[in-house]
C-alpha cells in the first residue's frame, strides 16, 4: 500500500538522519569542531557500502566503473561503511590540527567538501563520476517486498539503538565533560593536561563512523548513490537539526531532527502548486533550512532543548547530562 511504503521511507530516512546528526553533534555540539565537510563521511560510507556489495566493476555489463568491487554480506558491508566514515573523518580532522581560529577551520572544511565532490564527479574511473553508482543490491531481495521493507526498517532501528548506546558512552561521564571543556576553551583544556589534538582525532573518527553508517544504510535502501546526493549544503541540513534542537544535547538534537523533518514536509505543503518547476519544493526546503538556522542562532542559540549539566549533590552523584 502507498501509505505503508511512504511510512517505511520516512522511518528509514529518519533513522539515517538521526545517526548522522548524532555524529555531527558529537563533533560540533559536544567537541566544538565545526565539520562543514560532514556530508563527505556520509558519502564515504555510502560508496564503500556500494563497492562492498556491487561485486566487480565488470559486472552488470560493465556500464559503471569503480575501484575495488566485492560481494560482502550485508552486516560486513555496513561495518565497512562505518569504518570508511571513520577513516575519512579522521583525514578531514587533520586539516583542523593547526591552532587556527575555529571559523577559519570551518571554512577550510567547507572547501574540502566542495573539492572532494569536484574530484569524484570529474573522475569517472574512480566512483563512476557524476553519474554515480546504481543497482546496489537490496540485502533482502529474496524476501517478499513488503517484508523486505520492514526488515530494512528493523535493521535501521537496530543500528540506531546500538548507535545511541555508543554515543552516550562519549557524551556522558568524564569523557563527555572533557570534550565539552575542549569545546568551551581548547587552550585552557590543554593547560589542564588534555591532549586536544588526540581527542579531536578520536572524535572525528567516531563521528565519522556514525556518518559512514548512516550513508551505508541509505545507499542500501535507495540502491544508488551519486554526487548529487552529497552536495556540500547537505551538511547544513544536519547542522540545522543540531542548532535547532540544542547543541551538545543528545535529546535536543534528536528532537531537532524531528522538527526539521516536519518543518520541511509541512513547509513544502504551503507552496502553491506550480507544475512548471517541479524542483521548486526542494528549493523552498533549502530556504526554510537556512532561515531556521539563522533564526535560531539569533533568537535561541541554545536550541529547543539546551544542554543540561549534571549536579553533584554530596557523595551520591548522578550522571545524566543532556
Amino acid at each position: 500500500m502507498a501509505w505503508e511504503y511512504y511510512l517505511v521511507v520516512m522511518l528509514v530516512y529518519l533513522g539515517t538522519d538521526l545517526l548522522a546528526v548524532w555524529g555531527l553533534n558529537l563533533e560540533f555540539g559536544v567537541s566544538g569542531v565545526a565539520n562543514l565537510a560532514y556530508i563527505v563521511v556520509v558519502a564515504a560510507g555510502a560508496y564503500t557500502f556500494a563497492i562492498c556489495t556491487l561485486g566487480p566493476s565488470s559486472g552488470n555489463g560493465g556500464f559503471q566503473t569503480y575501484i575495488g568491487g566485492f560481494t560482502l554480506p550485508f552486516p560486513l558491508a555496513l561495518l565497512a561503511g562505518a569504518l570508511a566514515g571513520a577513516v575519512v573523518g579522521t583525514l578531514i580532522g587533520v586539516t583542523g590540527l593547526k591552532r587556527l581560529r575555529q571559523d577559519y577551520q570551518a571554512v577550510a572544511m567547507l572547501v574540502v567538501s566542495l573539492m572532494v565532490a569536484t574530484v569524484v564527479s570529474a573522475d569517472t574511473g574512480f566512483l563512476n563520476g557524476s553519474a554515480g553508482l546504481a543497482l546496489i543490491p537490496n540485502p533482502f531481495a529474496d524476501l517478499d517486498p513488503e517484508v523486505a521493507r520492514w526488515a530494512y526498517v528493523a535493521v535501521v532501528a537496530f543500528c540506531c539503538l546500538i548507535g545511541f548506546l555508543v554515543l552516550r558512552r562519549f557524551t556522558t561521564g568524564p569523557i563527555g565533560r572533557t570534550l565539552r571543556a575542549m569545546r568551551d576553551d581548547d587552550t585552557a583544556a590543554s593547560a589542564a593536561g588534555k591532549n586536544v589534538i588526540g581527542l579531536r582525532l578520536v572524535v572525528q573518527a567516531v563521528g565519522g563512523a556514525f556518518g559512514g553508517l548512516s550513508g551505508a544504510l541509505l545507499a542500501g535502501f535507495i540502491g544508488g548513490w551519486s554526487p548529487s546526493a552529497w552536495v556540500y549544503i547537505e551538511t547544513l541540513a544536519f547542522l540545522s537539526c543540531v542548532i535547532v534542537g540544542g547543541m551538545g544535547s543528545d535529546r535536543g538534537v534528536s528532537l531537532g531532527t524531528l522538527i526539521i523533518a516536519v518543518l520541511l514536509l509541512q513547509g513544502v505543503q504551503f507552496l502553491p502548486q506550480i507544475s512548471s518547476s517541479p524542483g521548486l519544493s526542494e528549493d523552498f526546503g533549502w530556504i526554510i533550512l537556512g532561515a531556521s538556522t539563522i533564526i535560531f542562532i539569533w533568537f535561541r542559540p541554545q536550541g529547543v532543548l539546551p544542554e543540561r549539566r549534571p549536579r553533584y549533590l554530596g557523595k551520591s552523584s548522578s550522571h545524566s547530562p543532556g
Binding site: L36, L110, L239, L289, G290, T293, I297
Partner: peptide, 19 residues
C-alpha cells in the same frame, strides 16, 4: 555570536540566496 556561528550564518544566508 561566536565566530564559528557567524560562519554557519553566512553559509546559511548563501544557501538561502542561492535557492
Amino acid at each position: 555570536t561566536r565566530a564559528i556561528a557567524m560562519v554557519i550564518v553566512t553559509v546559511s544566508a548563501g544557501i538561502i540566496l542561492q535557492y
